[in-house]
Each structure stands twice: as C-alpha cells, then as structure tokens.
Computed example of a mutant assay.
Amino acid sequence: MADSVLAVRSTRRPRLLAAWLIVAGAIGLAAAFLLTLDKLQMLRDPNAHLTCSFNVLIGCATNLASWQGSLLGFPNPLLGLVGWTATIAMGVAILASRDGFARWFWLAFNAGVVLAMALVVFLITASLTVLNVLCPWCMVTWSVTIPTFWAVTLYNLKTGVIPVPERVRRVCSALYGWVPLITVGCYAVVAVLAQIQLDWIHRAFV
C-alpha cells in the first residue's frame, strides 16, 4: 500500500485537470442552484412559471415533479449542490497540494464521479424515453459531468491509481489527450438520440 501511495504522489500535479474540475464544478453548482430555486418555487406554487421553462419541449417542471427527479427521496439538485462543491474543492486541493494524494482518495473521488455519470445516463434516458422533455439546467449538468467522468477516470487509469495492465495504461494515456473529442462524441450521441425520440430540431427551431 505504501508503494501505491508513493506512486500516486510522485506523479506530476494535473494542473489542467484541476482547473477543469474548478470550472466544471462552478458550472454544475450554478445549474444545481438554479434547479433548487425552481423546485422551491414549484413547492410554493405548482403553477408557477419557472426560469427553466421555455416551451413544451424545453423545461424542467416535468423533471422536477417526477419520481426520477427525487431518486433518493429528496430533489436531485441537492445532490448536485454537494457533489459539485466537492468537485471544486478537489480541484483547489490538487493545485494546493505539493505531495499529491493517497490512492484511496483518488479512488473515492473517482467512485463519486462514476456514480454521477451513472445518474446522468439514467436521467438522460428518462428524459428522452419517459418524460419526453429536455430540462435546460439538467443538460448543463450533463454537459459538465460527461467530460469530468472521462477526464478523472482516464487520468486514474493512465497513472496507475486504478490498477490495470501496462498496455491498458498506455491506451488510456493516449485517450486522455482526446477527452474533448470523446466528450463531443458523447454529446453527439445524446443529440442523435434526442432527435430520434423527440424530434427536437423540428420542434425547437422549425
């Protein structure tokens, strides 16, 4: 275990990853805050016009009122308030730390990112196939969760935090530099699925 910690600590600080975590955390936190405000407004007045509601296709009222919007018995945006605050803190901690972090710390953070990605995949699926609506603040959350998942996971794979064979580490090291393109590919998949399910191009712009 001591060797594992030493290996992680000897790795150069990922300043670019840290900067992204701070930026992504700030964007995600803002989206979660706005969703929380809209949820509170709905509780006060179920017929209120929310800041995220633009038309029958784009709005968050349906999502917030559904059971999918409160998976753990409380509104999902509260998870975002906690999760994105932790993400910002992680980014700041990376920049401030000289010795790096123990493997368990990176693994714990990665586990949180994986759970966030799993939640986003579930909510995207629910929005496109069950709720039939696109929540703008939710989409902002999706847009920063996806690259955060790839960046953190590939970083931990390429540095050996997540133990994998050397060949896999080399592949992940190469893929790490392509996170922006991988992210765009994921966005494209979601956009195509949304078009198939909701015909969003025609309904939103035509």
Rank of each mutant, 00 (worst) to 15 (best):
A174G: 13
V130T: 15
L17N: 11
G185M: 08
A118C: 05
M139S: 08
P75A: 05
A31H: 04
L6R: 15
A204H: 11
T62D: 05
M42G: 10
F54L: 10
V140D: 14
L123M: 15
N132M: 14
F54N: 11
A24Q: 13
F33C: 10
I182Q: 09
A118R: 03
L198N: 01
A191V: 03
I94Y: 05
A7Q: 13
V130A: 10
I94D: 01
C186I: 09
C52V: 01
A118I: 12
G160T: 03
F74I: 04
H49S: 09
R103L: 02
R13E: 11
L72E: 01
L40T: 08
C52N: 11
S97A: 15
V8Q: 14
A89N: 04
T148S: 14
F54A: 08
V113F: 12
G73F: 10
T85W: 07
G185P: 04
L128S: 12
R167Q: 10
V5W: 15
V179L: 00
N132D: 12
M42H: 02
P147A: 09
L57C: 00
L79H: 05
L198I: 00
P75S: 05
I162D: 01
A32M: 01
A19F: 14
A7R: 12
C60S: 09
P180N: 01
D199Q: 13
W142G: 04
V189G: 10
A93H: 04
T159G: 08
A24E: 05
V140R: 11
V120A: 14
V192I: 15
R12G: 13
A65Y: 02
F101M: 05
A30I: 11
V171M: 04
V184E: 00
T141S: 14
C172F: 02
N132C: 03
R169K: 10
W84E: 12
G80K: 01
V8N: 07
P14Y: 00
L35T: 14
V56F: 07
G160P: 05
Q68H: 13
G80W: 01
L115A: 13
P46H: 03
A102P: 03
K39P: 05
G91Q: 06
C186K: 04
A96P: 04
L123P: 07
T36C: 03
A191R: 01
A108E: 04
A48G: 01
R170M: 07
T11K: 10
A188D: 06
F54S: 07
Y176F: 13
L57N: 04
P46T: 00
G28V: 08
I22A: 06
A18C: 09
L40G: 04
R203E: 13
V206W: 05
A174N: 09
L128E: 03
P147G: 08
C135P: 02
S66M: 10
V192S: 07
V8R: 12
I146C: 03
V5L: 08
W150D: 02
V121T: 12
N110M: 10
V190A: 14
R167N: 06
A18I: 15
T145K: 06
Y176E: 01
L115H: 02
W84A: 08
T148Q: 00
G59L: 06
R167V: 08
R44I: 00
R103Y: 10
S53K: 04
G160W: 07
V161R: 02
S53E: 15
P163R: 00
V56G: 07
S97D: 12
V130Q: 15
